Amino acid sequence: MNISLVWCLLVLSFAIKVLFSLTTHYFKVEDGGERSVCVTFGFFFFVKAMAVLIVTENYLEFGLETGFTNFSDSAMQFLEKQGLESQGPVSKLTFKFFLAIFCSLIGAFLTFPGLRLAQMHLDALNLTTEKLTQTLLHINFLAPLFMVLLWVKPITRDYIMNPPLGKESVPLMTEATFDTLRLWLIILLCALRLAMMRSHLQAYLNLAQKCVDQMKKEAGRISTVELQKMVARVFYYLCVIALQYVAPLVMLLHTTLLLKTLGNHSWGIYPESSLPVDNSLHSSSVYSELPSTDGKMKVTVTQITVALSSLKNIFTPLLFRGLLSFLTWWIAACLFSTSLFGLFYHQYLTVA
């Protein structure tokens, strides 16, 4: 077993736990409307997930249908070998229903990080005067959209893998090469977002100066204690802002790493064809070196090996490739949807 899978799963679980804790904090607030916003976006993302899961593979090439079919067939064969009659572990409708519920929870967790990112993006653009930094900020904001478009089949097939040159389409790369390029592009966009973290956090800290300038325009006298509390409130909330900025990035990065490992992808653009390895000689030599008195141990090791190989036949790379591709796409889609709504809200619906 690859030990990196354990670390990726641990980091992913901690990131979800952090977002869950922040969301539960919003539910504890009685006066504000944060609870209603989370519930509304949760239902919105549930409907959106159900709609996306209905779309065929001709438009969104996750490989989810192929992976689930392979999983069902492998599970039925395994149960038949065990002498059990079954029509499959779970129906496709039930699988998609629970997957949509999980996606709605992820969307609810990413609601306020996306809204906050939109506000920091606008403030960072107003704060920055360099053209290069502004361009990087725009690319950083549109990065989830680029990730979403990487799984749109008409774009990837017709314009990237087989670009039209005149009247004919010339194959530019293979599917394996495009899968590798897609992984690298997601990692580069995640690195860009991490590099632009300082600009966004500095834009948030400038809210204290904006509040001070706004208070100076108001009538009446302001005590120094109230002014200090207001500035300290912005400073202490910086930890929450940093978590809301980093946690979705960590989720997206580690789902990509899991997709590479469990989906049997490669980091090389042109991977070499790996030759099959014959393990029969190695295994027989190992068993021959065992003493005859350890017959029970040999049988136990053989049973464990057979059980693990059976699980590998059920949970195939096709299943992980489809499921993790969908989850990676979904996280990027939720980030872009919430940040786009936040951009519209802070740009047109709030009073300066």
Rank of each mutant, 00 (worst) to 15 (best):
D213N: 15
D213P: 07
M215H: 06
K216H: 11
E218M: 15
E218W: 09
E218Y: 01
A219K: 13
R221H: 14
I222E: 06
S223D: 15
T224R: 13
T224E: 15
V225G: 03
Q228E: 09
K229L: 14
V231I: 15
A232H: 10
R233N: 14
F235Y: 13
F235D: 13
Y237M: 08
Y237V: 03
L238H: 05
L238I: 09
L238D: 02
C239I: 12
C239L: 13
Q244V: 02
V246S: 12
P248V: 04
L249G: 13
V250I: 14
V250T: 15
V250A: 15
L252F: 11
L252W: 14
L253W: 10
L253R: 08
H254D: 14
T255H: 10
L257V: 07
L257K: 06
L257A: 02
K260I: 03
K260H: 07
T261K: 10
T261P: 00
L262P: 06
G263F: 03
S266L: 00
S266Q: 05
W267C: 01
G268Y: 07
G268D: 12
I269D: 02
Y270R: 14
Y270C: 02
P271S: 08
P271D: 03
P271A: 08
P271T: 04
P271I: 08
S273N: 15
S273H: 09
L275Y: 06
V277A: 01
D278G: 02
N279F: 06
S280F: 01
L281E: 13
S283K: 09
S283G: 06
S283L: 11
S283Y: 09
S284L: 10
S285P: 01
V286M: 13
S288W: 05
E289C: 13
E289S: 13
L290R: 09
L290K: 15
L290M: 13
P291F: 14
S292T: 06
T293P: 00
T293Y: 09
T293C: 03
G295M: 04
M297G: 08
K298N: 02
V301R: 12
I304L: 05
I304R: 01
A307F: 08
A307W: 07
K312F: 01
N313Q: 06
F315P: 02
F315D: 03
T316E: 03
F320S: 09
G322C: 02
G322T: 05
F326Y: 10
T328P: 03
W330H: 09
